[in-house]
């Protein structure tokens, strides 16, 4: 893992407006930088804008025109995300495939593949297939015994752990996790979180975690990005602050 000097994400005055249900919602990011290997919890209740920010960082949501700076610096050359959204989306898809890993609420495994094929898929997509790494991650995450089971046949806890393996298999720069413990029981939640933190750290990946679980964030002593929501000109405006 090469050591990067600058931040992987660098955002300045990025906005995203969402219309829905006759109400306007605006997320404003005055300044946000995420260093390589850093951890950041996006903490807030539903509707606070943490999902919007996670989508922006996941490179699947287009920022409003006029954003001052939105750089993603994981590859050889930094990707100007705001500019990439103006063209065809190929550079964004390529960046997602090469440098981002995702852990979703219920794992988001493909039901028609085995656990092994699910874990291996991002590495295959990135052209970095590595059987030994799949086995190793599965062993560390405790899903080695179900590697050849259909993804839909394993328990929810196993799914979340397999999803962590999948998010890390292609050695991404950033892992994005969206409420990764929402679907498991409290005991399992502690275990899954501990594994997620340990493995992203071992892989040297930054971790951005969207959650509403204040207690967990406090217990793990994670750096937090908070969302201050205010009413401005009839629109709900959420401002991200460190």
């Amino acid at each position: 893992m090469s050591v990067r000097e600058g931040p992987v994400f660098s955002l300045r005055n990025v906005r995203r407006t969402r219309e829905g249900g006759g109400r306007r919602f605006v997320l404003e990011v005055p300044a946000l930088e995420i260093a390589p290997g850093a951890r950041l919890a996006l903490l807030g209740p539903s509707g606070s804008g943490k999902s919007t920010l996670l989508d922006l960082l996941a490179l699947v949501l287009r920022p409003d025109p006029g954003s001052e700076r939105f750089l993603f610096a994981a590859g050889a050359a930094p990707l100007d995300v705001a500019a990439a959204w103006q063209g065809d989306e190929t550079p964004l898809a390529t960046a997602r495939a090469a440098h981002l890993g995702y852990v979703l609420q219920t794992g988001g495994l493909l039901p028609f593949l085995t656990v092994r094929a699910n874990i291996a898929l991002p590495a295959r997509l990135a052209g970095r297939e590595d059987r030994a790494r799949v086995e190793e991650l599965a062993l560390r995450l405790g899903v080695a015994s179900v590697l050849d089971s259909p993804a839909e046949a394993i328990s929810v806890g196993q799914r979340q752990r397999a999803a962590i393996a999948r998010a890390l298999v292609h050695r991404p720069a950033v892992v994005l996790a969206d409420e990764p413990t929402a679907a498991v029981d409290p005991a399992m939640a502690v275990e899954v979180m501990a594994l997620l933190l340990a493995e992203t750290e071992a892989a040297g990946a930054a971790l951005v975690l969207a959650t509403h679980d204040h207690a967990m964030v406090a217990r793990l002593d994670l750096p937090v990005a908070r969302f201050a929501v205010a009413d401005r000109d009839g629109a709900a405006v959420a401002v991200v602050g460190a």
Binding site: A58, V60, E89, T90, A93, T94, A95, R96, A97, A98, L100, Y102, G108, L110, L121, P122, L125, A126
Partner: peptide, 10 residues
């Protein structure tokens, strides 16, 4: 959509 998220092109 998961495949799209993982970086498969449209």
């Amino acid at each position: 959509s998961l495949l799209r998220l993982m970086g498969f092109g449209r």
